[in-house]
């Protein structure tokens, strides 16, 4: 029975370490998380549908997904350029730029939130220029998108960067010696190989952006139906002691995150297949 489950090894501690891991995960992650589904099951299916298709909920979902999508798109372009520049070129300050890419992950989200808000209010350093261009920065979907772009950048750069580093130089040399010009080599040889990694990174950034709270609520303005993101709506329902309502919205978000996670895993698998690691 044991041999069926685990390959034989002379190393000790398998049962202890695996047992502890599963116990810890169950106690602090899985059991608490299952409360969401337990609580939702107290709603009838109709009530559940009613909550998640209410006008205000739909508006919040639409805003969260829309801004997350746009910011993921922005990061796809600029994250790829940043990763490319960091792997392929040398320039002064490169190591600092490389280290700073993780800044959005290290900086507490509330700090990012108030800093971005100060920058993009109409009197702010950057907000005044947006104002001149007739764009409302803070307290609008534009501001939300900016915050989500900040949060998502490391996910794209850090998934694309190692794949670019691992790329076999020979395939580019082969393409060049077969007469491809540089543009053809980049778009027809390199991009297809790193594309799944780019998709993984963008999906991770998108998933993070949907659930993001701290960096967004300051810059969003939080007007119901207009600039109220889905996580904030959960918060609002909680403050009104509408636990079933909050939970129903959370279930909707969770299910979508799981689908996205599965997609990211699939793209990851494609990447390693492309690199010949499977």
């Amino acid at each position: 029975m044991r041999e069926f489950f685990v390959k034989k090894s002379i190393l000790p501690g398998f049962s202890l370490s695996l047992g502890f891991t599963i116990f810890y995960l169950s106690l602090f992650v899985l059991i608490p998380l299952s409360m969401i589904f337990l609580k939702t099951s107290t709603l009838t299916f109709q009530q559940f549908i009613q909550v998640i298709t209410a006008e205000r909920t739909l508006a919040a979902y639409r805003l969260s997904f829309g801004t997350a999508f746009v910011s993921a798109g922005i990061n796809a372009v600029f994250g790829l350029i940043v990763a490319w520049v960091l792997v392929r070129y040398t320039f002064p300050g490169k190591r600092i730029v490389d280290a700073m890419v993780d800044f959005p992950l290290a900086l507490p989200t509330a700090v990012a939130g108030i800093a971005l808000t100060e920058l993009y209010v109409p009197t702010g350093w950057l907000g005044q220029y947006l104002q001149m261009a007739g764009i409302k920065g803070a307290f609008s979907p534009v501001g939300i998108t900016i915050a989500l772009t900040f949060i998502g950048l490391p996910f794209v750069v850090r998934t694309v960067q190692p794949v670019l580093e691992d790329l076999d130089p020979q395939i580019e040399e082969a393409a060049a010696s077969l007469g491809a010009n540089r543009w053809q080599t980049v778009t027809m040889v390199i991009l297809p190989v790193i594309f799944p990694a780019l998709l993984t990174g963008v999906t991770l950034a998108f998933a993070r952006a949907i659930g993001e709270y701290g960096s967004v609520i300051f810059i969003a303005g939080n007007m119901p139906m207009k600039t109220e993101i889905a996580p904030l709506l959960i918060m609002t329902k909680l403050e009104q002691y509408d636990y079933p309502g909050a939970t129903a919205i959370a279930v909707g978000m969770l299910l979508i995150s799981f689908v996205l996670l599965a997609a990211a895993n699939f793209f990851q698998w494609l990447t390693s297949k492309n690199l010949g690691k499977v």
């Binding site: 992650v29 969401i36 949907i210 659930g211 709270y213 996580p231 909680l238 636990y243 995150s257 996670l261």
Partner: peptide, 19 residues
């Protein structure tokens, strides 16, 4: 399962302990 908390919105992470 270990990575699961990374894809859960922080607000939901709080919500489950209220529930």
């Amino acid at each position: 399962l270990i990575d699961l908390p990374l894809s859960v919105s922080p607000v939901i992470a709080g919500l489950i302990f209220i529930l």
